[in-house]
Design a protein around this nucleic acid. Sequence first.
DNA 1: ACCTGAACACCGTTCAAGT
DNA 2: ACCTGAACACCGTTCAAGT
Lengths: 249, 249
Amino acid sequence: MASEVQLVAGSAAWWASRKPAPEYRRGRPPMDAGRIVAKALELVDEVGIQALTLRMLADALGSGTATLYRHFKGKDELLALVADRFLGEVSVPPEELDGLSWREAVSTVAEALHGTLCRHPNALSLLAAQVPVGPNALRARERLITLFLSHGFPVELSARAFTAIGHYVIGFAIQQHGPGAPGPEDHAQLRDYYHSLDPADYPATIAAAGELTSVSLHDEFLFGLGLLLDGLERARSNALQEPEAAVGH
Amino acid sequence: MASEVQLVAGSAAWWASRKPAPEYRRGRPPMDAGRIVAKALELVDEVGIQALTLRMLADALGSGTATLYRHFKGKDELLALVADRFLGEVSVPPEELDGLSWREAVSTVAEALHGTLCRHPNALSLLAAQVPVGPNALRARERLITLFLSHGFPVELSARAFTAIGHYVIGFAIQQHGPGAPGPEDHAQLRDYYHSLDPADYPATIAAAGELTSVSLHDEFLFGLGLLLDGLERARSNALQEPEAAVGH
DNA sequence: ACCTGAACACCGTTCAAGT
DNA sequence: ACCTGAACACCGTTCAAGT
């Protein structure tokens, strides 16, 4: 309700307001923000984001909870930094994309991002909050948009393609690795559940039960990614043939 | 670590284990599960999922927190029911799809789902947990798979198409309506932030800054949905021409 | 100047005691 | 049989007091 400008942790304005690390520390810092964030990500990976406690984090660092508040305004701010740190682990060596078509290159980057997200399932929901605009997110964005531009995509189409791919990869991963941890045994459970339904009410679901539960979620991810790339291929052809036409329709 | 079968709230096994409502209540029930869930969704819409407190919910119902535990094992179980109830608000009258092509029909259903999700931004993250398999989720799944099947999609392609569309819509909405509430003013902030970056480091991002922030997220949603439908159109043509071929590649 | 023990208000959950 | 006040252990956060 307040018309005051609020700095939401993780927002563009919040990142812009962050100082570039004081650096007037003489000798060794007894406790710096980087070390706290790194340990926080470790703990999130281990116990999950809900179970992460400031007391637990402080203990792991050999400190007290109050000390954490000297480096972060609160848990939200700490988690925003954890989110960007974990995005920083996405790495695709530039030479890996040499000689690839735009489609292969985008696919490689998307799969690398997806792979990193899958390696930190417990941290994933941190990306649901807002458009990630920390330094590591910026680097990834720059990389992918450059890829589109360098392969002849117009600026507008590049921007939309980036958002579509980025939202798809992150959105899919978030659902793929929820707290309900859908392992292989859950697949079997789900199939049994579908088959236990009343055929009069759910004929299509029952007919598709095997197909809905036999394919791994990773293959489902690749299938959806392929659909998006198919669509982008078509949009790119259209744009190159009629440079003046709008992207839509 | 326990090898015991755990019933995770919201999982297929958990839904399967739920009794179909005792119904031996004589007279009027002083407090039934449906009323609690309805009020819980109301409160989640108002104050957000994090701020929802069992005490708050009990107060709103004129009761105490302990009473809630007579109907649900805990907050997780309550929220799983809230999630399905809110999926139940998606409604597309059957006649609305009459005479539409499969593409128009799927698009209509996807947009209806997206619209409902947008109307409950605070409840959205409830869908991130696992594959929703409550009764209302089942109904929606049945509907959409039927749509694919009735328009000549093979069973396997129907199943994958459903998952791709479903994950896309839910995943996009989750990112669209995070706690960081990206309103129009945030768009401007984000654009300014991009423009404030070092052109040497982020040339592509800066070039695309206007395009990245000028288009509404709803249009971005429609664009990505269109890409997926383009891809499905192609996959459908391929499947109809070579019925024996696999879906992949 | 930097750190922290101890407290505060509040959370989800439980259970003995009420009706 | 059904409900609940009051307590329990624990959370994020604060601040006066230590070094």
